[in-house]
Structures are given as structure tokens and as C-alpha cells.
Amino acid sequence: MKTNRFQFLSALLISTAAILFAQCSSAQDSAKQKVAVVVSTLNNPWFVVLAESAKARAIELGYDATIFDSQNDTAKEASSFENIIAGGYKAILFNPTDADGSVANVLKAKKAGIPVFCIDREINSTNAATAQMLSDNYSGCVALGQYFVKTVGKEGKYAELLGLVGDNNTWNRSKGFHSVVDRFPGLKMVAQQTAEFDRAKALEVMESILQKNPDLDAVFCGNDAMAMGAYQALVAAGKADKVKVFGFDGADDVVKLIAEKKIAATGMQFPKVMAQKAAEYADQYIKGKRDFAQKIPVKVELVTPDNVGKYGDYGRKN
């Protein structure tokens, strides 16, 4: 009888302790502050790296982090912002879909007291986001343009595949490239079409460009996903050896093809660096810091067959 009572009391004590421990642990979890990562699209490996790096750094810094995919749609982005504001998030690490269209979302978050840190893409406002960590696309494409002239020559026919027309990065890249190439009248642009930063669309657009312009010498693509699509179209047309492909981003598959001398060059952005810094800035804000520079350009580096050994895994090799 005594043994039964002892067993009953022991079991009661153990279960009480277990319940208390579980409650305590759950209280600690619920005390974790939340950080949102809103990304323009997850349909491109580069942006997956950007979002996952931001999330991972936020978690390292002790936050609960959730990724919201805007699917390149400002309406979806707006809906995510409403959920984030209602959900009590403490900061937003934000890769905008549209330089103008995304400003209203950032202002909503600001009004709700939630700081927004833009990553990679900017918004056309200097008083909405807390800070904007932006790839220096223009300068990166100036360097690409100079390399383009060096490798293609001062005469030839080329095509340009543009990204999303509402995104500032599209035009910063294009303008940087043209600020160099347009100085050489012998270089003729025979086609300029958008493929919306999308590999499958780039494949289709490039096929159509090649039908009309079989004597193309080069193609400049506003990102590496489009460079891969363009390269795929060139391989299918048997012209991969003749037409030089230039990309932008520093995606792993393109860096590998540069090492194999199948793609001419790309501009290495540093998605991990940008995302991690943005998470660190959010942490500093939550802990009380307020004086952030509004725009922080992040240098883009030219990757060519000559220096490709220095690069990989979306950045410089250590």
C-alpha cells in the first residue's frame, strides 16, 4: 500500500515538473520577438539565398523569423504587410517588388511603428524605410560594359534582356551598361526586350530574337536567371560558341559556366552580405539604435574567366 502511495506521489511530482517545464519553455518561445522577411519572389535561386540568409541571421540573433513571398505582385506584398502589422512583428527585412508601388506598404509599417530595412532593391523614397542596403547596380554594369567592349570589340550586334520594367534595378543596370557601350557607335543594339528576370521567359525571348537576328555577337542580360535562359536558347540553336552572354547577380550556375568559359562575365552582388547586414541593422534598431544612413550601396564586382577562382557561393571565397 505504502509502495503504491509512494509511486503515485512520485508520478504526480514528475508530471507536475514536466508541465511546469513545458509551460516555462513555451513562455520563453512566446517571448521571442518576431522579424519578417518579405521577398519579391522565391522563383529565382538568387532571391531564395537572399531571403534564407536574412532569416538565418535573424534567427542567430535570437528572433523568430518568417519569410513572406510576394510572387512579384504588389497586391500580395500589401497583404503580407497587413498580416505582419497585425501579427506584432518587430522589424521587416524587405526586398521590394516595385520601387514606387512598394512605398505605400513601407509607410504603413512605419505608421505602425515597425522599421523596414530594404535589401537589394530600393524604394523611391528617403523617408519611408529606416535604411536601404542596395547593390550598386549602375557601377557594376559600368564595369560589365567596359568588359563587354573589351571582349566583343568596338563593332558588333547585340541584344539586351531587361528585367521587370517597374524595378529601379532594371534601369540602373541598363543605364550603367549603356553609359559605356553607347559611346561606341559600331556596337549596334538590335533588340531590347523584357524577360522579367525570369529564366523561362528569357529562353522564349532569346529564341525569338535569334530568329530575327541570326548574326548576333552578344547578349547582355539584366540578371543571371535570364543569362541562363539566353544561354539555353543559344545551346539549342547551336550558337553558344558564337554569341557571348553577359549576366548580372553572381548566381552559382553562372559562375560555374564562366569558369568553363561558356558565359563571358557577370556582376557579383553579395546577397548574403546584404541580407545579413539588414538583419543586424534590425537587431540594432530593436535594441535602440536610430541613426542609420538611408542608402548604403554595396559594391558589385566583375567576375570574368580571369578572376572567377575568387568567387563562389554567392560571394567571395574566403
Binding site: 528617403t126 557601377s139 564595369a143 529601379n168 553609359s179
Partner: peptide, 28 residues
């Protein structure tokens, strides 16, 4: 080409311009 004239002195700050295109146009 490049941004050395715009950026070497530190007299022009990127945060002053709402749009990176304006900042880039200054370089050109």
C-alpha cells in the same frame, strides 16, 4: 567611366537622393 569623381571626395552622399538613378546620373 566609373564613380571616382563623384565618390572620392565624400561631398556627395547617396542618402540625399530618393532614386539611385539620379545619383548615377550625377556620375555620368
Amino acid at each position: 567611366f566609373g564613380n571616382s569623381v563623384r565618390d572620392a571626395t565624400g561631398l556627395i552622399k547617396p542618402s540625399t537622393y530618393p532614386n539611385a538613378q539620379e545619383f548615377n546620373d550625377i556620375s555620368a
